[in-house]
Every structure is written in C-alpha cells, then in structure tokens.
C-alpha cells in the first residue's frame, strides 16, 4: 500500500472515530440511561480487572525500586529512593502502565464481544427488540471504562508503592510509616490530580476505541480477531498521545 492510501485510510478512520465519539455525546448521554447494564459493566470492567492491575502494580513498584537503587547508591542519595519511586509511580508510571494493562484486557474484550455480536446479528436483534444498541452497549461500556480506570489507577498506585516499600527493604531496613511519610511529603495535589484526571481520558479512549472496532467489525472470525487486536493497538497508541498532551497541558498550566 502506498503512503498516500495509508494516509487516506488513517484520516478516514480518524474521522469515523470522531463521528463515533460525537454520537456518544449526542445520543449516548441522553436519558433514559441503562443504569443496570452500566452497573454490570462497572463490575466486569472494574472489579474483575483489579487482580491483574494489582499484581502488575506490585511487580512494577518492586522492580522499579530494585532498578533505581544502584544508580542512587552511586550518587550517595539512596535515602531519596522512596521520594523518587513515589513521584515516578504516582505521576507517570502508575497511570500509564495501568492504562496499558487495562487496554490489553478490556479493550480487546470489548472489541471481541461487540465484534462477535455484530457478525452474529445480535446488535441488529437488539435494535429490533426496541433497545438502542448504541446506548445499551456503547454508552454503558465507555462510561464504565472512564469511571473505573481512575479508581483502578489509584488502587494500582497504592499497591505499587507497597511493592516499592518491599523493594527498599530488600537491601536495607525501612519502617513502613517512615517510607510512606517520605513518599507523601514529596507529593502535592498538582502531582496527584492531573495524573488521576488523565486516566479518565485514557479510560474513555479504551472504551470508545474498543466499541468502535467491535461495532464496525467485518464478517467472520478473522474480522472479530482483527477488531480485538486493533482495539488494543489503537487504544495503546492513543494512551501515549493523550499522555503527551496532558503533560504539555499541565506544563502550560504551571502544575509541574
């Protein structure tokens, strides 16, 4: 494929996703809301993802601490290890890694689920049954991902910091209270709030892209597989782009 046709495809897809997002705001947020389905999705998307997010967060905190220690020791500032790990986890690594794990688990599952519903005409069947499939399937999932990812990130950060505490204690002995006091004293609201707020946008991107890919899945098992795969790839790329934009924005607003 030539660069021109690839660029055309990219622009075409960007336009379609933007229209899909516009439809979410114009139709998906209008009453009557599918409250029961939203709660089900919050449970499936949030609660069911917690073990994975917790495990990866714990390992991330532990490994980050173990990797940072030698560099800090060489400069003689190993006492600053909790501060450095705390800021890195809360401001950047926690939100981004949690969002990427979330995109892998939830983005693919939404893409595959809606994709297979699309190819087996279940979405048409819902329409015929007097249910707006966009509200029932898309709006509930996008709202659930936007709400659940910030909560998962906060929990993931906490577990990650505990992992960092274990990491610090491998080569030295530090009191847990002293460790967390040192971490929290180094953090301000301008570290925590932008980091949590940006995960709302990450969650929105994961939900929207997953639903878009599923809703526009082509026929056959290959089409469903492609929807699931491209949902993960595209939402992961979007997470990095959104992260870049939020860093620029927080810099402009003087929140750094």
């Amino acid at each position: 494929m030539s660069i021109i046709s690839e660029s055309k495809d990219f622009l075409d897809q960007t336009g379609q996703i933007s229209r899909f997002a516009g439809r979410f705001f114009s139709h998906g947020l209008k009453p009557k809301f599918e409250v029961k389905e939203l709660l089900v999705q919050c449970y499936l998307i949030g609660y069911k993802s917690f073990p994975l997010v917790g495990l990866t967060g714990f390992i991330m905190g532990l490994v980050l601490t173990m990797q940072l220690r030698p560099s800090l020791v060489s400069y003689g500032v190993q006492s600053e290890l909790p501060v450095m790990v705390g800021i890195a986890i809360v401001r950047e690594i926690g939100p981004v890694i949690t969002a990427l794990i979330f995109a892998g688990k939830i983005g693919s599952s939404i893409g595959a689920e809606l994709g297979s519903m699309k190819v087996t005409e279940q979405i048409d069947s819902m329409d015929v049954s007097g249910t707006n499939p966009f509200k029932y399937l898309v709006a509930t999932r996008v709202i659930a991902t936007s709400l659940m990812l910030p909560i998962l990130t906060i929990l993931g950060d906490a577990i990650s910091l505990f992992g960092a505490y274990i990491g610090v204690n491998i080569k030295s002995v530090t009191n847990i209270r002293f460790f967390f006091v040192q971490v929290f004293e180094s953090l301000s609201y301008s570290d925590v709030l932008p980091a949590v707020i940006k995960t709302i946008f990450f969650g929105f991107a994961v939900g929207l892209v997953g639903c878009y890919k599923g809703f526009n899945s082509t026929k056959g098992t290959q089409g469903v597989g492609r929807s699931a795969n491209s949902a993960v790839v595209l939402s992961s790329v979007l997470i990095f782009i959104l992260d870049l934009l939020t860093v620029q924005l927080t810099n402009l607003l003087g929140l750094n």
Partner: peptide, 19 residues
C-alpha cells in the same frame, strides 16, 4: 420506529440469540 417494531417480529437467519 421502536413503537412500530412492537408490531413487527424479525427472525434472523443466524437466530441472533444473545449468547
């Protein structure tokens, strides 16, 4: 359309039951 569809049933080729 939703009101009109209460009077029209549709049997899909692949059944389209929610799995």
């Amino acid at each position: 359309l939703a009101t009109a569809r209460t009077k029209i049933g549709f049997l899909f080729q692949a059944n389209a039951l929610y799995d």
